[in-house]
Amino acid sequence: MLKTKKTYAIRYVNGQPVKHIVSDFNSQPKYSRIPKLPLTITKTFRVMVWNILKQQRKGWLSVLKKNGENTQLMLLQEVKTNREMLDFVASYYLTADQVPAFSLPKHSYGVMTLSSAFPVYCYPLRTREPLLGFSKSALITVYPTYKENLLMVINIHAINFSLGIENYNQQLEPIGKQIAAHKGPVILAGDFNTWSKKRVKALKAFTQNMNLEEVSFPVDNRSLVFGRPLDFIFFRGLNLIHSSVLATQASDHNPLLVQFDVSSNTID
């Protein structure tokens, strides 16, 4: 019998041993009640979303450094855990959590969420590509913010190659359960691989069912495949202050930048 690989997140904190966090969710997320520093001590915070293409192109590090000092959350996809990336994490962020989609002897690859605060909850997800056999990963984290709001953040790299949308919807299903169980503000963002009309329709139906609002961009320089954008940011319980897309040659995707104002929604 083949053993099923456990899905886990790897937590990187400067000066501390690497920690593995295994999925543990039944019907209600269990948030740590240990006091944590908030993501921001003001009402506003900044988020960057970017598929970094395994750091294969020149300039990726300068893009991160340019935005790292004033961005409280970075949601990255296709991250390779090389030394330059881990040094950036240690220099600019309090912690980073990665869910390996796959691993090689020296590096792991997958979504990574970098933050200026420790999460009070961490739930890793991994979905196998039905045609190629590789996996895509997603990560759900929850952070204390201004006035003890608890912000749920979902970083996703959606499956790419599948026949129909059944597998696509199956990847979104456990995320929907967690959003439904969370009573505070939510951000859902990443590379959704929405290169077909059916995928776009499935994603829009899912986010509408979750009462999530889509971020629009005044100058929309998002990367396109078959004329459709792949990267999105959705939210609820927050006020959108600013949104932009950074044009760069450092990846085949352009980074999304947003600034939010924390609402008064709280966890009961």
Rank of each mutant, 00 (worst) to 15 (best):
Q259P: 01
K19V: 15
R33K: 15
V219P: 00
N167C: 09
K204Y: 12
L188F: 15
F118Q: 10
I179T: 04
S62I: 08
R46H: 13
S251M: 05
G15Y: 05
I179K: 01
T113W: 04
P17E: 07
E148S: 13
W60Y: 13
Y168C: 05
E69Q: 13
L256N: 04
W50L: 08
A250H: 07
V219L: 11
L224W: 05
Q77P: 07
S244D: 14
L37D: 15
P124K: 07
T266D: 11
Q77C: 04
W50C: 03
L203P: 13
L37S: 14
H157N: 14
R57W: 11
V262T: 15
P229N: 08
E148K: 13
Y168R: 00
R46S: 14
V89E: 05
F235K: 04
N155Q: 03
L150T: 11
P29G: 06
D268Q: 08
G176V: 00
K147W: 07
A189T: 06
K106P: 02
N193P: 01
S116P: 00
P17K: 08
N221E: 13
Y109C: 02
F206G: 06
T207H: 02
A250S: 15
T44K: 13
Y31E: 02
L240C: 11
I154N: 04
M48F: 05
Y123K: 11
G68P: 10
G237L: 00
H107D: 12
P119G: 01
I41Q: 10
L2R: 14
V120R: 00
P100M: 09
F45K: 11
A138W: 02
T141D: 11
K36H: 10
E214H: 01
R126S: 10
L238H: 12
L230S: 10
R11S: 12
M48T: 11
D87A: 13
R33G: 07
T4R: 14
A117G: 06
Y121L: 00
Q72I: 06
E69G: 11
L76E: 06
H157C: 01
S116H: 11
L150Y: 13
K19H: 11
D191I: 08
L257H: 11
E129W: 07
I241N: 15
V200H: 13
F88E: 10
L73T: 08
Y92F: 15
R236T: 02
N155M: 01
H253I: 03
T71W: 00
I52N: 04
S103M: 09
N209M: 09
G237T: 05
V245Q: 10
Q72Y: 00
S263C: 01
R228Y: 08
S243C: 05
P229A: 03
N82P: 02
V219M: 10
N67P: 02
K54T: 10
I140C: 05
R11Y: 09
R83Y: 09
A9N: 01
N14W: 06
T40N: 10
E69T: 13
S116W: 01
Y121K: 03
N209Q: 13
L188C: 07
F134H: 08
G15I: 01
T95E: 09
